[in-house]
Design a protein around this nucleic acid. Sequence first.
DNA 1: CTGAAAGCGCTTACAG
DNA 2: CTGAAAGCGCTTACAG
Lengths: 340, 340
Amino acid sequence: MSKATIGDVAKAAGVSKKTVSRVLNNEPGVRKTTQDAVNAAIKSLDYVPNLNARRLRTNQSYLIGVLYIDYPSNFYGSLILNGAIKACDKLGYDLLIRPFESGYDAQMISAALKHMVERSNVDGFIVVPPLCEDESVIQALEETETPIVKIASLNQDSHISIHSDEKAGAQLAIEHLVNLGHSKIGFLNYLVGHAAGKWRYEGYKEALEMHGIEENANHVCQFRYGETTLEQACRKMLSQADRPTAIFTANDASAAVVYRIASQLKLRIPYDLSVVGFDDDPAAMNLWPPLTTVSQPVAELGYNAATILIEQCIRHKAKAALPLSLPELVIRNSTGPLPE
Amino acid sequence: MSKATIGDVAKAAGVSKKTVSRVLNNEPGVRKTTQDAVNAAIKSLDYVPNLNARRLRTNQSYLIGVLYIDYPSNFYGSLILNGAIKACDKLGYDLLIRPFESGYDAQMISAALKHMVERSNVDGFIVVPPLCEDESVIQALEETETPIVKIASLNQDSHISIHSDEKAGAQLAIEHLVNLGHSKIGFLNYLVGHAAGKWRYEGYKEALEMHGIEENANHVCQFRYGETTLEQACRKMLSQADRPTAIFTANDASAAVVYRIASQLKLRIPYDLSVVGFDDDPAAMNLWPPLTTVSQPVAELGYNAATILIEQCIRHKAKAALPLSLPELVIRNSTGPLPE
DNA sequence: CTGAAAGCGCTTACAG
DNA sequence: CTGAAAGCGCTTACAG
């Protein structure tokens, strides 16, 4: 097991502990032949540095915290974690997760953050939406004076936010519908207050404009998540004489609502109505016909967030442009040509 | 912030560092008045012990790892994590998660475990099914010589396994159906090879026996997870002249299959067919009519697993009887009286 | 019941 | 390009 210490390696390589330390940390100014000798000793002794000693000495924990709301079937959060773990593995960090119940309050947040910072000494935080849109959370975070990176946040002034080009994703959806001949394209947004809802709506608007289609207020419904008027509004939209022939929804969960209402109104998908969602949520796998949707590389967001947090915010390496992931259109069976 | 050290506290309380350490660790043999003085100093200095120093000195990480397979909508895994985190918070530990893709292989496992043990120095592991039923995983785990606690494992000889009384849960389901007048009660098991599948089947059998009902081989279907013959078998079972009037499924996902087949066969739930699931899986929330199912306290399993791992396996406190959580029947609308 | 000394395994600050 | 000494903040092993 990992019993060898830096002293054993130093002795085996015929150098000082400090020189071994230099090699371990890729510090410059070590002769190539010395490096090789040290590396050989490391290998032959099966040496693994003692992280706890390094932690004590450098006063860093090499731990980063992820704050998210835990709700059933949170595929988004899981993928963020997966991506972040991959980045941590690569950079020598570990991930500390901190799920909150949806009924969290400001006091629970600040107690949890205090615990993570004072006891576990996390070096930084990744904050997943919708938590990163909660001012009380951000404020509590700022009080800890610990670096943070947000994911898909509306407010990008005070902190770095990692996201994909969701607007472009929405445009992909609209373009697909226009190519199928549709011009009466509705929009159902259940994510008002989220960056995602805003960006996807912007993409919808700009794509319509690009194709010379006028936006029709009767074909657009926007709500906060949890507002139960969604179904009524959807029913109303689809019951109009001048109803849309296609609907783009800001998330797949809303698309499921459209399916239900369409079935009640005897509108067959895709023959009478085309539907495009957003998210490629596995929970939508049960929808019939299979949903055409926009998929963004969520794990990549988690990976990028952790990487930027560690390299730029913690290690203060040179800042580079933030990566912008690209969503893709996944064409399945819920979209079809404009009915004659 | 947490700048004060044990030395500052010692000075403020007029005692030695060792005595402060005794108070911090609840070691016996400190006079009450001394304790009070130390605690007052701790409070006034806002002292929080430096975990990294303790880690280095005690050669423990106060970290425990959780191994699980990551798949979409893994509500079970999430609840285990939530419960385990709660226990860790209470006992001064942190949780390191390690999700594997379902296509994992033995080499990925042992590389990941090596990393967690040698680099992150985890003090113990919690292993979630179905990973804990994989012999290659258990073997790799044993090679690390680190304590482990399994959750709901078939093999309970070599390691502690935490689970609920799933057999009793299954019996609750059958009793409910018997009370509604049913005696032709089918069983659909999609979890062969899992402890859950075994225990739920045993509960089914014993409950039938208890009520003097003979088991009918044509009313029982058992498969490994992922075998696609489930639908066919279910259709066959329900197409028989002597079909069951009620079906108990070993998990909610299988109940969803029953719903689909029943709909194809024009069997109305619950009028023509009663259905009881197991898990109370939030993914089954979309089922109509709402599914009667057995719910086990999954977060409690995670809590108990972490507690036992830390107190018994790591700290070697006195062993007590393992806790046995109790499942509950959640009656919704998929079960009704035997049709006339 | 309490304390002085040593040391866990690294890195920092300095010297050469 | 390399190293000797000191020290991070705790706990262990011992002494009284």
